[in-house]
């Protein structure tokens, strides 16, 4: 009985939990049921970006069959999806749409970065139109390395996501905190992509020093 008690920090996240409820095992059991319900019905969004999308489609097709995990219901609308599989290179031109789609997804929502490009820019990282990892803009839950990850590697990533879902509790997940979750500000297409969260930085940074620094670095290394 005692090991099923929620850890102390679980009750210290802003909720005023009455003392007699503190050791209530009902909440953890509820977590289990809640998690089980979610882990077997993660609906991904039908959302493909690049090469990895082809492997994602293959994962959903007959040989690898996502349906065995309850994930076959690919939803074209973000409003009905639980999971965004960012399958491919995220470009600056596309990131406003991706953030918008993420904001439109209802909670609970998860993001899986599939492949090197979505995780960290991949082989195209150096390009001028490539975002070096979708996690610069939206929070990512699971990273699947590979270029592209094989369907089996993606399935492994999805199982990892199920693991993560299992470890969550209704009390601690960020979207059920008081006040809810703020939507992520949508990046703006300016002379280069502008993240509204960077506005304070603009005052302290001038564009010029950035380049000087990298040039000096490389000269030093050479």
């Amino acid at each position: 009985m005692s090991e099923m008690n929620p850890p102390e920090n679980m009750n210290s996240n802003g909720y005023e939990v009455p003392p007699e409820m503190r050791n209530n095992i009902a909440i953890t059991t509820l977590d289990k049921i809640w998690n089980m319900g979610r882990r077997y019905s993660v609906w991904p969004m039908m959302f493909g970006l690049a090469c990895c999308a082809i492997e994602m489609i293959c994962t959903a097709a007959s040989r690898y069959d996502l349906a065995r995990f309850g994930m076959e219901v690919m939803r074209p609308s973000p409003r009905q999806a639980d999971l965004m599989i960012v399958s491919g290179t995220v470009t600056k031109k596309m990131i406003p749409q991706i953030v918008r789609l993420y904001n439109q997804m209802p909670e609970p929502k998860y993001v899986l970065a599939m492949g090197a490009c979505a995780s960290g820019g991949g082989p195209f990282k150096e390009g001028y139109n490539v975002v070096s990892g979708v996690d610069k803009y939206v929070p990512v839950d699971v990273y699947v390395p590979g270029c592209p990850p094989t369907p089996q590697a993606l399935l492994h990533g999805l199982m990892k996501l199920q693991e993560k879902i299992d470890s969550e509790s209704i009390r601690t997940v960020r979207w059920y905190q008081p006040g809810g979750e703020e939507p992520i500000p949508v990046p703006i297409l300016g002379p280069d992509i502008i993240d509204p969260r960077d506005f304070p930085k603009f005052k302290s940074v001038k564009a010029a020093p950035a380049k000087a620094e990298t040039a000096a670095e490389s000269a030093e290394a050479a």
Partner: peptide, 27 residues
């Protein structure tokens, strides 16, 4: 190292001199 750590914005961004984002209207 990761190249973004050397960029002041931590991202793959650069702007022309004297660029003020608050006046920029997304088209």
């Amino acid at each position: 190292y990761r190249i973004e750590d050397k960029n002041p914005y931590g991202k793959n961004n650069q702007y022309p001199d004297g660029f003020d984002p608050s006046t920029w209207k997304e088209s």
